[in-house]
Computed example of a mutant assay.
Amino acid sequence: MAELLVIRHGQASFGADDYDRLSDLGRAQSRAVGQVLRDMGWEPDRLMTGTLQRQKDTLAEMGFDAPPEEHGGFNEYDFYDLLRVKFGGEMPDPVRHDRKTHFRTLRDTILEWQRGGVEGAKETWRDFVARVAAARDFAMDTDAKRVLVVSSGGPIGQLVASTLQAPPEMMMTLNLQVRNTSMTRFIFSRGRISLHEFNAAPHFASAEGAKLMSYS
């Protein structure tokens, strides 16, 4: 049996022109999760990220030395594109800059996308599901016993939902629960996979660590 440990990237730069970069908090979160893995004696045999900068920077801050592989299937869905399509162009300012409004609107948009709506988006829901499955299979096609992946909330939600054979709507429920740099662990062997742990964050368990916790 082997382990697939999927970590969500550290906090990115919400509301900024360039979202795809870590905030100072995101860098601190990334260092903390790397340290807690070393403290646990968990050293990865294979490292992977998507192609997004915030994912690659999270792994770099974690401090593991081996060169990582990349698979675009671990990238987040393009939420800016989905929201722009939904609103016929530029997003309303509250949707772009107010967290509660943003994530409430995003949830409704993803549910619509899953039902075949948001026509004209760069990626369909079916294509998203397929690429996440392809990334999972690529990560499992290995002799490594400990595979570490840095991904994003949407793919993590989809990986868990598909593993549990849950309905599509569950993906978004899970997506919104995933904390920055939390760990979701799967056990796999011979093409079979099972969920072992979801959204764990031992690096947030202390009083000091709790100050690092964020969801977006």
Rank of each mutant, 00 (worst) to 15 (best):
G63H: 03
G153E: 10
D108V: 01
A133F: 05
T124G: 04
M213R: 10
V132N: 07
A121V: 03
V36T: 10
Q165S: 15
Y80R: 14
G89P: 02
G73Q: 02
V147A: 04
H196P: 15
G153S: 08
Y80Q: 15
M40P: 11
R185W: 04
L164V: 10
M171V: 14
L37Y: 08
E208H: 01
P67W: 05
F74G: 00
V178N: 02
R31D: 04
R115D: 13
M62V: 07
A2M: 01
L164Y: 14
D98R: 15
F14V: 08
Q53V: 15
A16M: 08
A205L: 05
L195D: 08
R179I: 12
P202E: 08
A134W: 07
R38E: 09
L5I: 06
E70S: 13
A139R: 09
E69G: 09
G88D: 05
R27N: 10
M1K: 11
V147L: 09
D93P: 15
T105F: 00
F128D: 07
T105E: 01
K56F: 15
L25A: 08
D78K: 08
A207K: 13
D81Y: 10
D137H: 12
A144C: 14
E169N: 07
V6Y: 02
L83S: 01
L22K: 05
E119A: 12
P68F: 00
L4Y: 08
H196A: 14
R31T: 01
F198Q: 02
D57I: 00
F64R: 02
G157Q: 00
L148N: 07
S13E: 10
L176I: 11
L4P: 04
S214Y: 07
N199Q: 09
I7N: 06
E90T: 11
R192A: 15
P92F: 07
L25G: 03
K100Q: 13
G120E: 11
R131P: 11
A16N: 02
S189T: 15
Q114M: 06
A32R: 02
G154I: 00
Q29F: 05
T58L: 11
V129W: 10
R146G: 02
R146M: 00
Q35T: 03
